[in-house]
Nucleic acid binder design. Sequence first.
DNA 1: GTCAAGAAGATTGTCGACAGACGACAAAAC
DNA 2: GTTTTGTCGTCTGTCGACAATCTTCTTGAC
Lengths: 236, 236
Amino acid sequence: MNRETSALSEGYPFLPLSRNGLVDRVAHSLVSAILSGAIRPGERLAESHIARQMDLSRAPVREALRLLESSGLVEYRTNRGFFVRVNSARSIGDLYELRIVIETAAVRALTLTNPDALPGLRAKVDELYQLAEAGADMMSHVSVDMQFHRLICEGSGNQRFLQVFDQIANETKLGLLVIGRLYDDPHRMAETHEPIVDAIAAGDADAAAAAIAYHIGVAKDLVTEHIGKQQEAGET
Amino acid sequence: MNRETSALSEGYPFLPLSRNGLVDRVAHSLVSAILSGAIRPGERLAESHIARQMDLSRAPVREALRLLESSGLVEYRTNRGFFVRVNSARSIGDLYELRIVIETAAVRALTLTNPDALPGLRAKVDELYQLAEAGADMMSHVSVDMQFHRLICEGSGNQRFLQVFDQIANETKLGLLVIGRLYDDPHRMAETHEPIVDAIAAGDADAAAAAIAYHIGVAKDLVTEHIGKQQEAGET
DNA sequence: GTCAAGAAGATTGTCGACAGACGACAAAAC
DNA sequence: GTTTTGTCGTCTGTCGACAATCTTCTTGAC
């Protein structure tokens, strides 16, 4: 604390300089590979291969994988290694119901105690419209959508809500990206967020809760339906 | 964890056995030490010391600690190591609100779709009465109480609810045990579970949800109040 | 042709070692 | 006396090696 304040008061122009280590970088790299589809669900993640490819030892790779495991992207089997988790339609359905439960409570708290969060939410919806206008890819849409929902959890004032959201965020993204396309008209994705923002703006917590529950419920149906079809079809 | 439950549901009389061994055993051992108070919040957990004491290398210890980190018992700081997490009253309050949200949804689902779970819940309440009768210690009470709540999440049919519950279970226990004593009369702990079970038995989901929300809410107030006092007093 | 047993290869589990980072304390400068 | 600088011990970050374990392929019997 002393160091910080003195540095600030003396006005040094230095940034904290990210001291995040190797493990974080490896983890991030793996997440990108999985979410981009370069590594597909069910595929094995051999520590040695990854280590060799990244030109480092197995230890940091192993730790990064353990990190991904706790965020649900990857599954670990004793003496067999790590695998990209493959989710059933049921499991994804459960995931969305968890999101409904969490985000309903979050939006309620936000509406009642933190109206200042509204501009940030509005900005995200605008961003979604712009992406639709520009014909952006699915990845970008999903990313901004998740940012919107994260802002809701963050604005609830309950750190635990945010913690749970972050823990399932990557898994949700993976579920979405496997599908390839969610709405036929990309504008719909932006539009479906309007009722939530309107209810918050009106200060109506019940309406906001109902709106977000409906919003996530619709997404749930779309996603589980798609995945159900995929699993019927693509059994190799 | 999954292994344990599946073994239990299949009714094998075997203990988990050291199938995965080391890492799990180390993790379990550390959890016990923390929950028993042998290692106190804020204390540093030096890998080398633990490894030497358990007569093994640092690698499995490190992995076990990372495991505990994802369950919130332990906190990691880059280049500084692991510390037992010390929770503010606020943080514990948030934790209980998360529990209200999750378990309310869980008990609702359970009441509507899975009445077969009732006998198991009744048995846990009986167990609580027996513990009170026998004058058992706080640890035993807390343990059975948590088993009751876990059964509710399990009975909801939504694996994600159970997953979140398991993730915060140890932290909840720690919060409780730090206090030392929750209810003056140990019978009260058993009694406060009755309305929940009754509502489930009546098939009234709304009543069950209200009952469990009230039940956890009371516990929340007790715990946060205790912790608030402790933090005022015990600033060394 | 099918199945089982065993050998060979590959991958994980654990270890000990060394380099780098951090905190504490001592020494020096003002 | 206070602040800065230098030094030291301890702990983490990463590595390469070896043992234990799983998977695959081969071999042989029926």
